[in-house]
Simulated scan of single mutants.
Amino acid sequence: MLTGKQKRFLRSKAHHLDPIFQVGKGGVSETMLKQLEDVLEKRELIKVSILQNNEDDKHEVAEALAEGTGAELVQLIGLTVVLYKPSVNNRQIQLPKS
Rank of each mutant, 00 (worst) to 15 (best):
G68I: 03
V48Y: 05
L40A: 06
K58L: 15
I77M: 11
E30S: 10
L33M: 09
I46S: 01
K25F: 03
S98M: 12
V82Q: 00
G78L: 07
K58R: 15
L76F: 00
Y84Q: 04
L95V: 00
R91L: 10
R8F: 06
D56C: 10
N54V: 01
A62F: 05
D38K: 15
Q6A: 06
M32R: 15
G26V: 07
E72S: 11
L45R: 04
R91M: 04
P19G: 11
K5W: 03
L10F: 01
L17V: 08
K7R: 14
K34A: 14
L73W: 03
V81Q: 02
K34D: 12
Q6E: 14
T31E: 15
S12T: 11
L95T: 04
L10N: 05
G70C: 10
D18L: 14
S49T: 10
Q22I: 14
G68Q: 04
A64W: 08
N89L: 11
L65R: 13
E37H: 12
A71S: 11
P86N: 08
N53I: 08
A62Y: 07
G24M: 07
K97N: 13
A14H: 03
G4V: 14
E60H: 14
K25T: 10
S12D: 11
G27Y: 02
K25E: 09
V48Q: 05
M32C: 09
R11H: 00
Q94T: 05
G27C: 04
K58V: 15
R91V: 13
D56P: 05
D57R: 12
L95H: 00
K97H: 04
N53R: 13
E30G: 07
T80V: 12
K97V: 10
E55H: 12
Y84G: 08
L79P: 10
S12N: 11
E37P: 02
E37N: 15
I77L: 15
Q75F: 03
G4Q: 13
N53E: 13
L10R: 02
K42A: 14
A66W: 01
L95R: 04
L95Q: 03
L51A: 15
E44K: 05
L45H: 03
V81P: 00
L83M: 03
V82K: 00
P96R: 04
A62N: 04
I93G: 01
D56F: 06
L2P: 12
H59G: 15
V88I: 13
L2H: 07
V23C: 04
M1D: 06
K42Q: 10
H59D: 14
G4W: 10
K47G: 02
E41N: 08
L10W: 01
G24N: 10
L65K: 14
E37D: 08
K7M: 08
L73D: 02
K47L: 06
A62Q: 06
D57P: 09
L17R: 05
V39G: 11
R43K: 15
I20W: 00
L36I: 08
L40S: 02
L51M: 15
G24I: 02
L76I: 02
I20D: 02
M32V: 12
S29D: 03
L79D: 12
V39A: 10
F21I: 09
T80C: 01
D56K: 15
P86Q: 06
S49E: 12
G68Y: 01
S12M: 06
D18Q: 09
T80A: 04
